[in-house]
Amino acid sequence: MGTYKLILNGKTLKGETTTEAVDAATAEKVFKQYANDNGVDGEWTYDDATKTFTVTE
């Protein structure tokens, strides 16, 4: 398990959240659902060194 971070750079929603997941693929699924639930759809990037996903609208 590891802690993964999501940085939201949406047009109307900005912020950060974290999740505990077994791997990056699992964290990505959780974060994409979170972003979708909050109406954020954009370009995704992932930094393996910091376990950080970023979505920018």
Score class of each variant (00 low, 15 high):
residue 1 M to T: 11
residue 1 M to C: 08
residue 1 M to A: 10
residue 1 M to W: 14
residue 1 M to F: 12
residue 2 G to I: 15
residue 2 G to H: 15
residue 2 G to V: 15
residue 2 G to K: 14
residue 2 G to P: 10
residue 2 G to F: 15
residue 2 G to Q: 14
residue 2 G to A: 15
residue 2 G to W: 15
residue 3 T to L: 14
residue 3 T to C: 09
residue 3 T to S: 07
residue 4 Y to K: 00
residue 4 Y to E: 00
residue 4 Y to Q: 00
residue 4 Y to D: 00
residue 4 Y to V: 01
residue 4 Y to N: 01
residue 5 K to W: 12
residue 5 K to C: 06
residue 5 K to E: 03
residue 5 K to P: 01
residue 5 K to S: 06
residue 5 K to D: 02
residue 5 K to M: 08
residue 6 L to M: 05
residue 6 L to V: 04
residue 6 L to D: 00
residue 6 L to P: 00
residue 6 L to F: 05
residue 7 I to Y: 07
residue 7 I to D: 03
residue 7 I to L: 09
residue 7 I to G: 02
residue 7 I to C: 05
residue 7 I to V: 13
residue 8 L to G: 02
residue 8 L to Y: 09
residue 9 N to S: 08
residue 9 N to Q: 10
residue 9 N to I: 14
residue 9 N to V: 14
residue 9 N to G: 04
residue 9 N to M: 12
residue 9 N to R: 12
residue 10 G to A: 11
residue 10 G to N: 04
residue 10 G to E: 03
residue 10 G to S: 09
residue 10 G to C: 12
residue 10 G to M: 12
residue 10 G to P: 03
residue 11 K to V: 12
residue 11 K to H: 10
residue 11 K to T: 11
residue 11 K to A: 11
residue 11 K to G: 07
residue 12 T to P: 04
residue 12 T to Q: 11
residue 12 T to H: 15
residue 12 T to D: 10
residue 12 T to A: 10
residue 12 T to W: 15
residue 13 L to M: 13
residue 13 L to P: 03
residue 13 L to R: 08
residue 14 K to P: 06
residue 14 K to Q: 12
residue 14 K to N: 08
residue 14 K to E: 05
residue 14 K to W: 09
residue 14 K to V: 10
residue 15 G to D: 08
residue 15 G to Y: 14
residue 15 G to P: 04
residue 15 G to A: 12
residue 15 G to C: 12
residue 15 G to Q: 12
residue 16 E to S: 11
residue 16 E to G: 07
residue 16 E to V: 11
residue 16 E to D: 05
residue 16 E to A: 09
residue 17 T to P: 03
residue 17 T to E: 06
residue 17 T to C: 11
residue 17 T to F: 15
residue 17 T to D: 03
residue 18 T to W: 15
residue 18 T to Y: 15
residue 18 T to V: 11
residue 18 T to F: 13
residue 18 T to S: 11
residue 18 T to K: 07
residue 18 T to G: 04
residue 19 T to E: 04
residue 19 T to C: 10
residue 20 E to H: 11
residue 20 E to C: 09
residue 20 E to Y: 14
residue 20 E to K: 10
residue 21 A to M: 03
residue 22 V to K: 10
residue 22 V to Q: 11
residue 22 V to L: 11
residue 23 D to M: 04
residue 23 D to C: 05
residue 23 D to A: 03
residue 24 A to W: 12
residue 24 A to Q: 13
residue 24 A to C: 09
residue 24 A to R: 11
residue 24 A to M: 12
residue 24 A to K: 15
residue 24 A to D: 05
residue 24 A to L: 08
residue 24 A to P: 09
residue 25 A to S: 07
residue 25 A to M: 13
residue 25 A to Y: 12
residue 25 A to R: 10
residue 26 T to C: 06
residue 26 T to I: 06
residue 26 T to E: 14
residue 26 T to S: 14
residue 26 T to A: 15
residue 27 A to L: 00
residue 27 A to N: 00
residue 27 A to I: 01
residue 27 A to C: 02
residue 27 A to W: 00
residue 27 A to K: 00
residue 28 E to T: 04
residue 28 E to W: 14
residue 29 K to T: 09
residue 29 K to P: 03
residue 30 V to F: 14
residue 30 V to Y: 15
residue 30 V to I: 15
residue 30 V to K: 08
residue 30 V to Q: 10
residue 30 V to W: 15
residue 30 V to N: 07
residue 31 F to I: 01
residue 31 F to Y: 02
residue 31 F to T: 00
residue 32 K to T: 05
residue 32 K to C: 05
residue 32 K to V: 06
residue 32 K to H: 09
residue 32 K to A: 05
residue 32 K to I: 07
residue 33 Q to P: 02
residue 33 Q to V: 09
residue 33 Q to D: 06
residue 33 Q to T: 08
residue 33 Q to Y: 05
residue 34 Y to A: 03
residue 34 Y to S: 02
residue 34 Y to H: 04
residue 34 Y to T: 03
residue 35 A to T: 05
residue 35 A to Y: 03
residue 36 N to Q: 15
residue 36 N to A: 15
residue 36 N to R: 15
residue 36 N to E: 13
residue 36 N to K: 15
residue 36 N to M: 15
residue 37 D to Y: 07
residue 37 D to Q: 13
residue 37 D to I: 11
residue 37 D to S: 11
residue 37 D to K: 10
residue 37 D to A: 13
residue 38 N to S: 08
residue 38 N to A: 13
residue 38 N to K: 14
residue 38 N to V: 15
residue 38 N to R: 15
residue 39 G to E: 06
residue 39 G to V: 04
residue 39 G to N: 10
residue 39 G to D: 07
residue 39 G to R: 07
residue 40 V to M: 08
residue 40 V to F: 11
residue 40 V to H: 04
residue 40 V to L: 12
residue 40 V to Q: 04
residue 41 D to F: 14
residue 41 D to G: 09
residue 41 D to E: 14
residue 41 D to W: 14
residue 42 G to M: 03
residue 42 G to K: 02
residue 43 E to Q: 13
residue 43 E to C: 11
residue 43 E to L: 13
residue 43 E to S: 11
residue 43 E to R: 09
residue 43 E to N: 11
residue 44 W to I: 03
residue 44 W to M: 04
residue 44 W to P: 01
residue 44 W to F: 04
residue 44 W to A: 01
residue 45 T to G: 06
residue 45 T to F: 11
residue 45 T to M: 12
residue 45 T to I: 10
residue 45 T to L: 09
residue 45 T to C: 08
residue 45 T to P: 00
residue 45 T to Y: 11
residue 46 Y to M: 02
residue 46 Y to E: 00
residue 46 Y to C: 01
residue 46 Y to R: 02
residue 47 D to G: 02
residue 47 D to I: 05
residue 47 D to L: 04
residue 48 D to G: 10
residue 48 D to Q: 12
residue 48 D to M: 10
residue 48 D to T: 12
residue 48 D to S: 13
residue 49 A to Y: 11
residue 49 A to T: 13
residue 49 A to I: 10
residue 49 A to E: 11
residue 49 A to H: 11
residue 50 T to Y: 06
residue 50 T to L: 08
residue 50 T to M: 08
residue 50 T to S: 10
residue 50 T to A: 08
residue 50 T to R: 06
residue 50 T to Q: 06
residue 51 K to C: 06
residue 51 K to E: 03
residue 51 K to L: 09
residue 51 K to N: 07
residue 52 T to S: 04
residue 52 T to D: 01
residue 52 T to Q: 04
residue 52 T to I: 06
residue 53 F to I: 01
residue 54 T to I: 10
residue 54 T to N: 05
residue 54 T to S: 07
residue 54 T to H: 06
residue 54 T to K: 06
residue 55 V to G: 01
residue 56 T to G: 04
residue 56 T to F: 08
residue 56 T to Q: 07
residue 56 T to A: 06
residue 57 E to T: 07
residue 57 E to V: 06
residue 57 E to G: 05
residue 57 E to L: 07
residue 57 E to I: 09
residue 57 E to F: 09
